[in-house]
Design a protein around this nucleic acid. Sequence first.
RNA 1: UGACCCAUGGUGUAACGGUAGCACUACAGAUUUUGGUUCUGUCUGUUAAGGUUCGAAUCCUUAUGGGUCAACCA
Length: 551
Amino acid sequence: MSESKEIVRNFIEEIIEEDIRNNKHQGRIHTRFPPEPNGYLHIGHAKSICLNFGLANTYGGKTNLRFDDTNPVTEDVEYVESIKQDIRWLGFDWEDREYYASDYFQQLYEFAIQLIKSGKAYVDDSSAEEISARRGVPTSPGENSPFRNRSVEENLELFEEMRAGKVKEGARVLRAKIDMASPNMHMRDPIMYRILFTPHHRTGNKWCIYPTYDYAHGQSDSIEGITHSICTLEFENHRPLYNWFIENLDIFPSRQIEFARLNLEYTLMSKRKLLQLVNEKLVDGWDDPRMPTLSAFRRRGIPPEALREFATAVGIAKRENIIELSRFENIVRNHLNKKAIRTMAVLDPLKVIVTNYDRGVEWLEVENNPEDPASGKRKIAFSREIYIEQDDFMEIPSDNYYRLSPGKMVRLKAAYIIRCDQFVKDQNGKVTELHCTYVPESRSGQDTSGLKVKSVIHWVDASHSITTEVRLYEQLFTKPDPASFETIHEIINPESLIILSDARLEKDMANAAIGFSYQFMRKGYFCLDNGNHDGKLVFNRTMTLKDSFSK
RNA sequence: UGACCCAUGGUGUAACGGUAGCACUACAGAUUUUGGUUCUGUCUGUUAAGGUUCGAAUCCUUAUGGGUCAACCA
């Protein structure tokens, strides 16, 4: 027997396995993914989704989808729908466990009464400014609110007035009574409820007091019996408070565990800034293929399997990290290379006349995907007039350039070797046409010419091709660390989108379908855009091929 | 002048007191009818100083560096 591959566990898996060994919660594992419906899911969320659902999957547990909808001011149903669609597309299923923090508003309210009754919460009439001023700073203690020692009866009465809508927004809050001198700012009598006369997308006008994150989140976890509540590092300082509520309410002890969020080079993860890109129309919307949102990845042709692999490949740890884009690209290319059907597409056409070709149209056979023999072969037309890529010809070639130039030969993929005899320029000096001769005995697969050429280039037949639009995407930002810049405008990449309207594809590509990936040979991976273009075909570049020929 | 967390090649992540490994990147070579793919090889690492120990990336102390916290956001 060969030795089995060692399984590497991340620190969360180690905690879970320890809990299972100790029979904690009878070995039950239950996680949750808690998005706030105030924006679209991005690749950072994908890491969290894969972690939470993945953990449940490997340990025979369950994962709830719970919308953390405690702030009606910023949240909307539009986001709820997109989030559900994106999680499904990523490949995960929460079955019937679709919950909302707002489902628990009544329960949370009763918990609050319980804390008031036990003298652990009080109503504060201070203004936001006063509260902030009395909270102190991290390096020195705060001071108690003058309203801190109200009687239980008074607190109950006042809180009821808040609930009943008798108090103006901002005039009163409910606070936990903990310790204004705590070195942890979150323990300095944190706010539990604030008054907001904003209708909620689910509860409508039923409530005008809304629980804050700190008060709602842990209790929602507890209500759902979540065993491992996984969140990002910035909530580390909230954990004592998370535990304080659970202990003082004496409810199910969910455990919060923090891990380092995903950071990716050239990518912004801040929902606020992504929203800004959308609002200022710096991109085409949340699903603009340059965005890091899941809907954008879908539109750009990134396979969900690749995203899942990436999410686990980056690892789970507590160390701050910035993943290199090459890591992401490597994984996406691996997936696409295996499954993408090859086709020839000339993005920037240059006409070639094969002057000695007089056999009309000839049909040549070519593999659909050399990586996958099962993908079969197809026939492509070849005739006297074809197109090649502008940059596959250089009038004065550089030393390491081994494509076409005057007097030089290349092979046309799956066809013949041609030699460039002449070129035609327009008045601007741009090369507009090549006159070449082909070598009849060099036909692909039955080459008896004995000629050796350094390069094989792609091409399409002029009369057996279609003209389409092709969109080339590059990084949206010119800096690898866009988050560290104050304004996004200064780092927007002006060439992040290049629209080519005259691309020539093999005629068969008229039948291209959404959801499939194609490799435009030597040019990259592309997919049909899922937007509405009045019947016109538009292709998005998912990713370039790795390019060892640097320009 | 606080609390909490983190520190392993360029990047990310393993090694759970006993040979610092893997992946990506970069570079070099081989193969190739995609300058793709594939294959082979090379370079580069335990933040520092003490301590414990036969033995420390791992445990302890201190220092240094980085992150988070002062919304009625999540």
